[in-house]
Design a protein around this nucleic acid. Structure first.
Length: 438
RNA sequence: GGAGGCAUCGCCUAGUCCGGUCUAUGGCGCCGCACUGCUAAUGCGGUUUGGGUUAAUCGCCCAUCGAGGGUUCAAAUCCCUCUGCCUCCGCCA
């Protein structure tokens, strides 16, 4: 959610943001009208309620006076006054009830509309759709397999040769887009997890193992029940959701809290399984483990002052690059265009690793500055010398297992199908230098 | 899964039986001011959160006693539902 004050002071800013995202501009007009209606209704209720309270204050003492009345005459007079008061009060009570219902309804309408408004985009973000990203950095050089004299195998083939990935059995047991990591594949994931957590801890992030099943409030608070809802698994029997990223439980960690600004930034590295329905991606990446329904991921998450958010975003990106650098993978960094940000992000950078057999770069990490958007929805605030106000949240992938494993296998393969283990991972694989076909 | 208890504005706490005097008590902590060589002590004032009104402040108004409903002219207080925590029993990685 965005600062509601902007709706009154500068609604054009909201319209411009919606326009850049390719989302409804009319929504803002509806919201402006609904907001006025809500305040009117609220004010009517406030006034009536005030009247009712004042009236109520007279009834108590009057009843006392009635009991203590010295003679019949004064008793009758007091009784008459009380009856009149009660009649007014009863009438007022009905009007208060009606006004309250109206105010609640108007408020609910505003809330519903606000939930449909995506975060204000950063004006630096390139405007456009998925293809309109800007490349902001490149690192490493893709290998020239032609010059090396062999055609690279794709990760599916390598995974089979090495006994590292079993997609056939994944499909047998769980259906399409599921897989087993076996032997060296599983060891590779554990090594990646350890390297990621070691790096995270070295930078002062607190390692966290999160729940993967969350309540609707956590899902909604992080903005995943909007456009992204079709990609979320819902557990019907218990009204809960399987998270698509530990961003959700990490953001919710401090929900409803007010954090002393002196304790900021709070930085976490969360580990959880991630579940995605991948609705609407039929036919995309059907081969291999680039796009799967369940995978594990180490995710960084930060709570900080809004004024520090952009610097923090750059820091998260640099930590992501440090990790990918350590894995000796060629990659590029893109500044994601406004139409492809998702509802929560104001700005987003993706790291795309070179995938030799696809002859292209594919997303392996993503870091978003969600400014105060999620914090408002989750009621996470900070207290500093300026008072109590929402803080900023940011997230960034440190290591999404399947895609990183794909990149390692394909980029570090040798002519005989073996794969060289990146130096940084070797300590976590018992010193293993090369994974060889079984 | 069963039985019982608890939930008050940072922390502790009064109030709930018996509805109105609750504009929620007191202590601790914290902030400001005063006093004082300094510190300490003391005194005075302030200290939940959200919203409205205002150019803004002061002020005023509304909501908020775990959440949501209900009864009533009036609810922290009475009734119902839910959630969380604690104790005991059962079951179980």
């Amino acid at each position: 959610m965005i600062d509601p004050a902007i709706l009154r002071t500068d609604p054009d800013r909201l319209r411009e943001s919606q326009r850049r995202r390719g989302e409804s501009v009319e929504l803002i007009d509806e919201l402006v009208a609904a907001d006025v209606a809500k305040r009117d209704a609220q004010q009517r209720f406030d006034e009536l309620r005030n009247e009712q309270k004042n009236l109520g204050k007279q009834i108590g003492p009057l009843q006392g006076a009635l009991k203590k009345a010295a003679d019949d005459e004064s008793r009758v007079a007091a009784q008459a006054e009380l009856d009149a008061l009660m009649a007014t009060a009863q009438d007022l009570a009905e009007r208060v009830k009606a006004a309250e219902a109206e105010a609640a309804e108007a408020g609910a309408r505003v809330d519903t509309l606000w939930l449909q408004v995506s975060n204000l985009v950063n004006l630096e973000s390139p405007v456009g759709g998925e293809a309109d990203f800007v490349v902001v950095a490149e690192a490493g050089t893709p290998r020239d397999f032609g010059a090396e004299g062999f055609a690279p195998r794709d990760h599916v083939e390598l995974g089979e040769l090495l006994g590292a990935i079993d997609i056939t059995r994944g499909a047998k047991v769980s259906g399409s887009r599921f897989f087993y990591l076996t032997g060296p594949g599983a060891m590779l994931e554990f090594a990646l997890l350890n390297l990621a957590m070691q790096q995270a801890a070295a930078h002062g992030l607190v390692p966290v193992i999160t729940p993967a099943l969350v309540l609707p409030s956590a899902m909604e608070g992080t903005g995943f029940l909007g456009q992204a809802a079709e990609n979320v698994y819902r557990i019907e029997s218990d009204d809960m959701y399987l998270v698509g990223t530990s961003e959700v439980p990490l953001a919710g960690f401090h929900a409803d809290e007010i954090i002393d600004a002196a304790d900021l930034p709070l930085r976490y590295a969360g580990w959880s399984s991630c579940f995605r329905r991948e609705a609407g991606s039929y036919g995309k990446d059907t081969r291999g483990i680039i796009r799967v329904h369940q995978f594990d991921k180490v995710e960084m998450f930060v709570f900080c002052r809004p004024e520090d958010a952009e610097a923090e975003h750059a820091r998260l990106l640099s930590w992501e690059r440090e990790f990918v650098d350590a894995l000796e993978l060629p990659y590029r960094v893109i500044d994601v265009a406004t139409g492809d940000l998702g509802s929560s992000a104001a700005r987003k950078f993706d790291i795309e690793a070179w995938i030799p057999t696809q002859d292209t770069y594919r997303e392996i990490t993503s870091t978003s500055n969600t400014t105060e958007f999620q914090a408002r929805r989750l009621r996470i605030r900070m207290r500093d010398e300026k008072g109590t106000r929402p803080l900023a949240t940011l997230n960034g992938t440190l290591c999404a297992m399947p895609r990183v494993i794909v990149a390692i296998l394909e980029n570090h393969q040798q002519a005989d199908g073996s794969v060289v283990v990146p130096v940084a991972l070797r300590p976590f694989m018992g010193g293993l230098e090369v994974i060889t076909p079984t």
